[in-house]
Computed example of a mutant assay.
Amino acid sequence: MMYKVQVRFLFHSDIKIKIPEIYNDSIFDDLFGILEDVNRKYNSYSENSYIDKINKNSGHFVKVDLQTIEILRKIIYLSKIIGGEYDIIIMPLIRLWGFYKQNPVLPYFEEIKKAKKLIDYKKIIVDRKRSCIKIGKNQEIITGSFIKAYAIEKMVNRMREMGIKDAVVNAGGSSIIAIDEWGIIAENPEDEKEVLRNVNGMPTRITKYKHSGDKDNDLFEIKIKNMSYSTSNQKNTYLMINNEKYGHIISPKTGFPSQNKQVGVITKSAFFGDIISTGLYNQTPEGFYKIMERLSCEMEISGFLIDKFGKIHYFNMEKYF
């Protein structure tokens, strides 16, 4: 079968949609329109989005729509399962570490300790009856770890409603959804060539990989159908402070960036997958297995963790190889 592809830049990523060529090009406008709508309404970086209003009115209830309520309820639920190592109120630590500064410096322990006091997803109050949300005073929600996947999942559901039965969506590499069976290559996060760019005011090291056909650069290949593959790593976005690398995935409990290398998660839900892969990034191998066991009782899930020593820990991955 022949396919057609469009790529557009949204959520600070190149979003690639690949569908059979029999469909009219106007479908791309409809599909990308769904992403743009989510970006406008729910992205914390979008002026006057529901999340932006919640952040600007911290300590007070803010009227929101039903989708905002459902998004935050699901996030709170998963945060509890992951044991607090996933927290969307992490922004104070991200700012402290200097991810929005040109010349970051290593924060003092007392500064980290102070910032950690603001980070607690349990202070998010969801009033479903009144359709209101409140966060603690001076708290701030950051949507970067889930909003793109939420939008992609919503768009893919629309694709299924339209009768598209063979397609793949690549959300900048961090989340891939396959309708019908597609092969996905998991690449080695250690084999990199880096260049420094400025993305949205944040100094970002962009990783350039060898061609995916280079077996030395591949971890393995998986085949998925009607599933999503979500990855979390710190190869693209990190700081260099005193010649040391500090990644952007920070533990809410320790206040320090995790030293793990990569997490990959296969789930039905890309939205859940991105949240879970981020939360698992802060886990020890023992914590990884414990949480995956718990999650497997509630959903179909597989995955792997590459720890700080480069050792790969697999959970229920065999059927996808």
Score class of each variant (00 low, 15 high):
107 P>L: 13
121 Y>E: 04
319 K>T: 11
227 M>C: 03
171 A>C: 14
140 E>R: 12
274 D>I: 09
71 I>F: 08
267 T>N: 07
253 K>L: 03
229 Y>N: 01
118 L>Q: 02
78 L>T: 13
207 T>F: 00
188 N>K: 01
47 E>N: 07
123 K>G: 06
302 S>Y: 03
52 D>G: 10
296 S>D: 08
78 L>S: 02
207 T>V: 14
206 I>S: 07
169 V>A: 14
155 M>N: 05
187 E>I: 15
201 G>P: 04
206 I>Q: 05
220 F>Y: 15
30 D>S: 15
38 V>K: 00
81 I>Q: 01
105 V>W: 02
95 R>H: 14
236 N>M: 06
290 K>C: 05
116 K>W: 14
71 I>G: 08
78 L>A: 08
112 I>Y: 08
302 S>G: 12
6 Q>K: 11
58 S>Y: 13
211 H>T: 15
312 I>P: 09
316 N>L: 02
84 G>M: 04
269 S>A: 14
301 I>S: 02
206 I>N: 10
174 S>G: 04
30 D>Q: 12
212 S>Y: 08
91 M>K: 10
61 F>D: 07
244 E>N: 14
82 I>W: 06
235 K>F: 02
204 T>E: 07
235 K>H: 13
278 T>H: 04
24 N>G: 03
244 E>K: 14
141 I>T: 03
23 Y>D: 06
115 A>D: 02
189 P>D: 02
94 I>C: 00
185 I>C: 05
280 L>E: 10
99 F>H: 13
129 K>R: 07
199 V>M: 15
164 I>N: 08
305 L>R: 03
295 L>E: 08
108 Y>E: 09
60 H>T: 09
173 G>T: 04
27 I>M: 00
140 E>P: 01
70 E>I: 06
49 S>T: 06
82 I>V: 12
167 A>D: 03
75 I>T: 00
254 T>F: 10
248 H>D: 09
284 T>V: 05
228 S>G: 11
13 S>R: 01
81 I>N: 01
301 I>Y: 03
124 I>N: 10
266 I>Q: 06
288 F>N: 00
309 F>C: 07
158 R>G: 01
288 F>Y: 06
156 V>P: 12
24 N>D: 15
73 R>H: 09
6 Q>N: 11
98 G>A: 10
94 I>D: 02
52 D>V: 05
189 P>C: 01
209 Y>G: 04
109 F>T: 12
51 I>T: 12
79 S>Y: 09
296 S>V: 06
243 N>I: 02
64 V>W: 01
89 I>N: 06
127 D>C: 00
41 K>A: 06
254 T>N: 04
168 V>E: 01
201 G>M: 07
126 V>N: 09
312 I>F: 05
245 K>W: 09
168 V>N: 15
196 L>D: 05
